[in-house]
Amino acid sequence: MANQANSDQLVGILRDTVVALVRRDGPDLSARQLGVFLTVYLTDGPHTVRGLAAELNVSKPAITRALDRLGELDLARRKVDPMDRRSVLVQRTLKGASFLRDMRSIMTAAEQTARETVVPEEARKAG
């Protein structure tokens, strides 16, 4: 039962985070775009279209479309690999780093809200 409650809490944090991202001024990313963005920013690179497609188990055109949008928003950029001109590297940007920082703050607030909600609920059940 505790495992279910923890899972529900995590899903609630995700929901609150996504809702906050949608409501605020700024980019509104699809799940795929967010997955690509987070992979680029939270895992060690270098990142390539081919590598991202393999890691996320989606097609290269799907990664390309996500990167097109991330590029429009200046959250990531593509650069031809100087060592292998056939390969394209995905790079982080200052605006992307700022977006990730904002996202961390939003998630931290959502987690705090979830904790405050669970404690009174557990006290009510115990009493």
Rank of each mutant, 00 (worst) to 15 (best):
R104K: 13
L89M: 03
G35F: 06
V11H: 14
T17G: 08
Q33E: 11
V119W: 07
I63M: 06
Y41D: 04
D8Q: 14
L100A: 04
K60T: 13
A114R: 02
V118F: 11
A109S: 12
R15P: 09
A20D: 06
A76E: 00
A97Q: 09
S30E: 06
N6Y: 15
L52A: 01
D25E: 12
S105R: 13
H47Y: 02
A123K: 14
L100R: 00
R50W: 07
A66Q: 00
V18F: 08
R85N: 09
E55A: 14
T117G: 13
R65G: 07
G71N: 05
L38R: 10
V88Y: 05
R101D: 14
L94Y: 11
V19D: 12
R32W: 06
L75E: 01
V19R: 08
D81I: 03
V90C: 01
G12M: 07
I63T: 03
G71P: 06
G71M: 00
V119A: 12
A114P: 04
D74E: 10
R104C: 14
A54M: 07
L38G: 06
T113E: 15
S7R: 15
G96Q: 01
R104P: 09
R78V: 04
P61Q: 01
R65A: 10
S30H: 04
V40C: 05
I13M: 04
T117A: 13
G71Q: 05
L38D: 09
S105T: 12
A53S: 00
M107I: 09
T93Y: 02
Y41T: 01
T43V: 03
A114M: 03
R69Y: 08
P27M: 02
L56A: 06
V118Q: 11
K125Y: 10
G45E: 01
S87E: 12
A20F: 04
G26P: 02
L34A: 12
T43W: 06
R101N: 10
E111F: 12
V58Q: 03
L70S: 05
A20V: 04
Q4G: 13
L29V: 03
R15T: 10
T39D: 08
L10A: 14
R78K: 08
I106R: 01
D68F: 07
P120F: 00
D44N: 12
D68V: 05
S59G: 07
T117W: 11
L29S: 02
L67G: 02
Y41P: 08
L100P: 06
A53L: 04
L67Q: 07
E111W: 12
Q4S: 13
R92G: 06
R101M: 11
A114C: 02
E116Y: 09
D8R: 15
A31V: 14
Q4D: 15
L100E: 01
L38I: 02
Q112E: 15
T113A: 15
E72H: 02
R77H: 08
L67F: 00
Q9W: 09
A110I: 02
V49P: 05
D81P: 05
T113M: 12
L75R: 01
P61T: 02
D68Q: 09
A2K: 13
L38M: 10
T39P: 08
P61F: 05
R77Y: 00
S7G: 15
V58P: 00
R15A: 10
V49Y: 05
A53T: 00
V80R: 09
Q9A: 15
A114T: 01
M1S: 15
G12D: 07
F99V: 03
D68S: 08
K125E: 11
H47R: 06
A123I: 11
K79R: 13
